[in-house]
């Protein structure tokens, strides 16, 4: 059985439920969702400017000791934060921005990553992704990488412009999503054990990895960092007991190039104190 959800309304008593048959419920719900997305888009940039990390203290009430203590411990190691838009792509977009920011400073790593990205395109096509769309997405991704290589994009402001142009920015996110999907499918023998029973890796990837705006879980993070060989350190700020944030490295024991803050449902970028000049 399947069908549009408004079919459910047919069994209800219109008077009792306040259901008005003249209003298209689906359209109303979708219009409201679009409005919420628009409000977020109008107020939060895809990738924002750096801000003083201590602003986090003002986001939680004074009597909230768990959060206050954890933020204080976080402040010892980090001092700046860069927000990303909470649109379901925050992990991929934040990770990619922070990595590109690093690539500006390391020409050798940039060359390595250009090679990796070219190889990934061939891998994806070999896995059965349609070559025509993969080439389109890869070409757009490489245009951005090459602009780092030619120094056309060589500072934070130019990088912010690149990542806040919606089309370009989404192409970058999509390429990272596809390479994550490709890595999971290539290594499905190992990763399938993390999925709910009955779900194939192919299905998981086409529902939860490849579409834009689907949120990321540990499995996305492990796969992405393993696929491109770039470590990330994630600081989990949540209500778990203790006065320190929980820290995880992906892959295990890596030397991270990227630092992220996770608050339930959302990732932002963190900057170490030692990087401060």
């Amino acid at each position: 059985m399947e069908g549009p959800s408004n079919a459910e309304s047919s069994s209800k008593d219109p008077v009792k439920d306040g259901w008005n048959p003249d209003i298209n419920q689906d359209e109303a719900i979708i219009a409201q969702q679009r409005q919420i997305e628009k409000d977020i888009a109008d107020s939060i940039k895809l990738v924002g400017d750096k801000m003083d990390l201590s602003f986090l203290l003002s986001e939680y009430p004074d009597e909230d000791d768990v959060y206050k203590n954890k933020i204080k411990s976080l402040l010892k190691k980090y001092h700046l934060l860069r927000r990303t838009r909470p649109d379901g792509n925050c992990f991929f977009r934040g990770f990619t921005f922070a990595y590109f920011e690093y690539l500006i400073t390391d020409a050798q790593e940039l060359d390595r990553f250009i090679d990796v990205s070219n190889k990934i395109k061939d891998d994806l096509i070999a896995l059965g992704f349609p070559s025509f769309t993969i080439e389109d997405i890869h070409e757009n991704f490489m245009n951005a990488l090459n602009s780092l290589k030619t120094k056309e994009v060589s500072n934070e402001e130019q990088l912010l412009n690149l990542f806040n142009e919606q089309g370009t920015s989404d192409y970058l996110v999509v390429f990272m999503r596809l390479l994550t999907s490709g890595y999971l499918q290539k290594n499905q023998e190992f990763y399938s054990s993390f999925l709910d029973s009955g779900l194939t890796m192919k299905n998981f990837c086409s529902h939860e990895v490849e579409p834009l705006n689907k949120e990321s879980d540990h499995i996305h993070i492990i796969a992405l960092t393993s696929a491109i060989g770039v470590g990330v350190c994630i600081n989990y700020l949540d209500r778990a007991q203790g006065d320190q944030v929980t820290v995880h490295y992906f892959p295990d024991n890596c030397d991270p190039k990227i630092y992220l803050l996770y608050r339930p449902g959302h990732y932002d970028i963190l900057y170490l104190r030692k990087d401060d000049v």
Binding site: E2, G3, P4, A7, N24, I30
Partner: peptide, 24 residues
């Protein structure tokens, strides 16, 4: 589809404005 007549009567012109439930 089993709910064809109700859906066709009440739906938007644009199918992307329907909240579809994918069951199988």
């Amino acid at each position: 589809p089993p709910d064809n007549s109700l859906y066709v009567k009440t739906c938007s012109k644009n199918p992307k404005k329907t909240k579809w439930w994918y069951h199988d």
